[in-house]
Write a protein that binds this DNA or RNA. Structure first.
Lengths: 134, 134
DNA sequence: CTTGTCACTTAGACAGGTTCTAAATTTAGC
DNA sequence: GCTAAATTTAGAACCTGTCTAAGTGACAAG
């Protein structure tokens, strides 16, 4: 998702057929504005900074909806470590194991070729995660 | 890990500096002998087929130890879906989302190039998971 | 303005998978 | 055979994430 301000977030949600409720806008805006990959819990904390504004359930619902509508990408970096990435363009990831931080790798930096697609199957996503230590 | 019989498993464990307790041997042997990717739970069930022989905690401890010692590879296919792979040679994976099944892709079938390694970091593993639907 | 409907949010209960803990057991070194 | 250290066990605890039932709010029709 690309959205520089809350109005743009509202438009992006509407365009994807998602009612832009205040909670969803807060969540999407927060995810966009931090140029990191955030976990559901980090988003919950971030959105509820001053005072509780959004419930846990809504954060999960909203994130799942955004993933389903293709506005956000879900990334699994390690067992129990799910991150959400507002960048849906093709690109890959590097995971700093010791710090638990996940960063982007531009698509050009990694070449993936010759993916075999079985009959009748459709590639949903190709995840390339480079796990580095140190 | 490559081990055709229990004696070979014992040797492999010893070589990696892991005391070959009977439970660990059972677990490693079971994982090797099924040419699938198994979850911790499937391994627990499999090892305890006839009568309870190994506790849940031990299965998790043993698997984590084997991963740490490089005898087994840990694969994350989806949130909450962790599989263990006795094949530690370079290769990739294809995940059939609808069936929840993870299969090998020979390394030659996917070319990954130009991985940038940050200063002072060491690549631990490169995970390529092709997620297909249908 | 009032009502009814519908989608959404909420809090808390629940579920699955993994780790932790304390006690019991086994292993290894003398 | 002892003793100490490592390992296993059962079960409690924990963490993410989902479900449920009730409550809230927006909106259209009367």
């Amino acid at each position: 998702m690309y959205a520089s301000d809350k109005k743009a977030v509202v438009d992006a949600l509407r365009m994807a057929g998602v009612s832009p409720t205040s909670q969803r806008v807060e969540i999407a805006y927060h995810l966009y504005n931090r140029q990191e990959h955030l976990s559901a819990d980090q988003i919950l904390e971030g959105v509820n900074g001053d005072y509780p504004a959004v419930s846990r359930g809504t954060v999960y619902n909203a994130l799942n909806l955004l993933v389903e509508k293709g506005l956000v990408r879900e990334l699994i970096a390690a067992p129990g470590k799910v991150f959400y990435d507002p960048n849906t363009h093709p690109h890959h990831h590097i995971f700093y194991v010791d710090q638990g931080v996940l960063m982007d790798l531009p698509a050009e930096m990694v070449q993936v070729k010759n993916i075999p697609v079985p009959e009748g199957c459709e590639i949903e996503q190709i995840d390339v995660v480079v796990r580095v230590r140190g």
